[in-house]
Design a protein around this nucleic acid. Sequence first.
DNA 1: CGATTTTGACCTGCGC
DNA 2: GCGCAGGTCAAAATCG
Length: 541
Amino acid sequence: MPTLTIPIYFFFLFSLCISISPNTYMDNRHHHREFTFLSSAHFLDHIDPPSIKEMDFFSTSSPRDHKNNTSSRDTNDDHYQNRDDQHDTHDRHGSPTRVIDHRVNTGLNLTCASAGVTKAENGENPETELSSLESELLRLQEENNKLRNVLDHITKSYTQLQAQLFIALQNLPQNMETKIVDPGTSRKLDVVNDASVSDEKTDQDVSVSRSNNAEVMSKTHDHDDPQLTKLLNLGKQACPDAAEDVLDRSSSQSWGSSKLEEQPKTTAEQLPADQIPLRKARVSVRARSEAPMISDGCQWRKYGQKMAKGNPCPRAYYRCTMAVGCPVRKQVQRSADDKTVLITSYEGNHNHPLPPAATAMANTTSAAAAMLLSGSAASKESLTNSAGYYSSTIPYASMATLSASAPFPTITLDLTQNPNNAAMQLHRVPPGHGGATFPLPLHAAASGGPHLLGHPLFFQQKLLPPQALMPLLQRQPSSMVETVSAAIASDPNFTAALAAAISSIIGVPRGGNDGNNNNSGSGAIPGSPQLPQSCTTFSTN
DNA sequence: CGATTTTGACCTGCGC
DNA sequence: GCGCAGGTCAAAATCG
């Protein structure tokens, strides 16, 4: 893809994401923050932010812009409008949104701007100006065609992925039968065995495919795409819980390993180090709370308590009791350093509908887990290496921490820090901790709890190898567009990570099998239903 | 009386 | 093999 279009591409994707769910958990204020990438100075305090509305960005602009707008609508591709909306909204917000403006200026109006100055200075007649505008219009149309091609490519890839998903779901029953000993508790065997789903593939291919499927599964839970829902239902009919278990097998299958029946030891121990998949992920949430447990909307039953080493506060173990056999468990423990900080760790994915209050957290943890696992499956080495590298150099604060020292990947979402301060400080993980910190906008405090978690920067922590950010780490984070552009250019795996991030966003207006009424976020916006297709595709390329 | 919590025992993995 | 730590089980206790 041409260098110039990379920021456009990125912004295009983000516009899609924004257009999906502006009215649900992530309100406009949050969208705003996501685009400011932690640079906003009014995270919690500013009130009544301008709402993101369907409006014509170009309507108040010059006739030139209006022409562009009209040309961009000659198809039913409303993403452009969403993009326009975002630009407009953020423009009215002020400086933090210069990211967007920067993109527009460099991507579309760079040459025109200079031409405009020339025209103004030289006092050209309207006819000359008109021809200039027409040529510009042609350029913009060309740009639109590029984006349209991208969309077509995405749609095509999405269709292919759907087919892969269907095949994978058909293969699941046989695999599950031989592996699940205790279906009631959804306990699974080593995910390595699932590589048999596609014997002709290499291990790496299988891992990537599996992670992609997991992402699709996660996304299918989270939006209303009828096709994907149908596919998932087909899979459920063939094997109940199989669909949910795709993620579970990656993220929570270690639970209850003692009760698994004997299997041929084709486990991680026998695989080369570079082929050992990271088999589960944990999403840890740090939040200040005096209560013994944060309210996340789910029902939990305490099943154990232990004193953990190095912490005078006991660690409590809970399992989800909203459905029989739900594999989700969580640990709650107060921080040893700051006892006002409650650390809640989630593992697994719910196998049942969730109440609205629980969907945000569940989606976030699923997405984070999927992100970690898909990233680890695709490039475990890059993940761990990146973690170690970032721990000492990432020029952002700890909003999300990726731990490489744990036996499984753990992402810590730190809701205790003021993102404004955090964004400006250089966070360093204590020696030996092995964690990596990344900018991740979170919105818990604004909603009274860790319910709303930002997504846009998930991708940044997942797959980008150190070299991808090397040039970026050596300067101030002046432009996130530059950061992202460089990341895209330097790491093809970015797309997979981006897919996880986007799918996590899609998951927010959950309206799928949990029967929640959050469809308004995605359904009310014209042109949005196609967005998931676009998002999915990135994990396949 | 059912659901939940408590708590000691047990299991597993890992390092020495 | 042993000890340690993390995690889970399950009977008893407690709660509503």
